[in-house]
């Protein structure tokens, strides 16, 4: 009974995805895919998305874990103030600053670049807070043992604290990756050429550009989700539901 309900819901739920997959092969079959690849430079769009997301995830993890570690371990003047600033920033949605940020970016000549699509997302208050709360409960014994062995603070961070925070690195990484890969508003504002456009924006532009050919639009869709899907299927065994929810405790 429970099983039947679950399977029934799953059928309804996967209907849009099935529509897309089937639609991409209608009238023309694989030729739809060839048509998409001739209409847009899919490879470069994909690389744009990949570069942006990779930089945001890797550099962001480094920067935010350093910030979180420092906030949790170091004692310095203004630490409390800094921490409350982080909490405040967690509440300001990015959308709210998009407009002034857009004018700043154009003023310093960063419009229509890949850089401007990564830099504003590197330091992230939510990620800093995740790392901060994790390091608060991180056992100090390991770090103290390393210090007795003569390790410098940065060595302790690199050798002990950073590897020790694997669960947060994973959950924060997934959340950041999804947000970056799926971003729409910011690329819409700052990009004007296909050269630096990410896939998430390119699909919307592709679909509104004539001729309206649903089979090709769906082929584009299948092409754009297949890398993420593949990555997800490969990692699925390692992603425990707890990894995502550990951050919100």
């Amino acid at each position: 009974m429970r099983g039947t309900l679950a399977v029934g819901l799953a059928c309804l739920y996967s209907w849009p995805i099935a529509m897309m997959a089937a639609g991409s092969l209608r009238d023309g079959g694989w030729r739809n895919y060839a048509a998409v690849l001739s209409r847009v430079d899919f490879c470069s769009l994909f690389l744009n998305s990949l570069c942006i997301s990779a930089v945001v995830v890797v550099l962001g993890s480094l920067i935010n874990s350093m910030a979180g570690y420092t906030l949790a371990r170091a004692s310095f003047r203004g630490r409390g103030l800094l921490l409350s600033l982080v909490l405040l920033c967690m509440m300001i949605p990015f959308e709210a600053v998009a407009v002034p940020l857009f004018y700043t970016a154009s003023r310093i000549g960063l419009r229509d670049t890949l850089v401007v699509q990564t830099v504003p997302f590197l330091a992230n208050a939510f990620s800093i807070y995740l790392f901060y709360t994790f390091y608060l409960n991180f056992p100090r014994e390991l770090e103290e043992a390393a210090r007795l062995d003569g390790a410098e603070t940065w060595q302790i961070y690199l050798r002990v604290a950073l590897p020790g925070s694997a669960p947060v690195l994973a959950s924060n990484g997934i959340i950041t990756l999804l947000a970056s890969w799926n971003s729409y508003l910011w690329p819409l504002l700052v990009t004007s050429t296909a050269r630096v456009r990410p896939l998430s924006l390119a699909i919307a532009i592709f679909h509104s550009a004539p001729p309206l050919d649903w089979a090709q639009i769906f082929a584009f869709g299948v092409l754009m989700v297949s890398p993420t899907l593949l990555l997800f299927l490969l990692l699925q065994r390692h992603i425990q539901p707890n990894a995502l929810s550990s951050g919100i405790k």
């Binding site: 996967s14 995805i17 999804l178 799926n182 971003s183 919307a204 769906f218 989700v225 899907l229 699925q236």
Partner: peptide, 17 residues
Amino acid sequence: ALFFLPVLFPMSLVAVI
């Protein structure tokens, strides 16, 4: 995995579909 799938779809693609 199936119920999680749409999360991997950018909202722009979801809107188009």
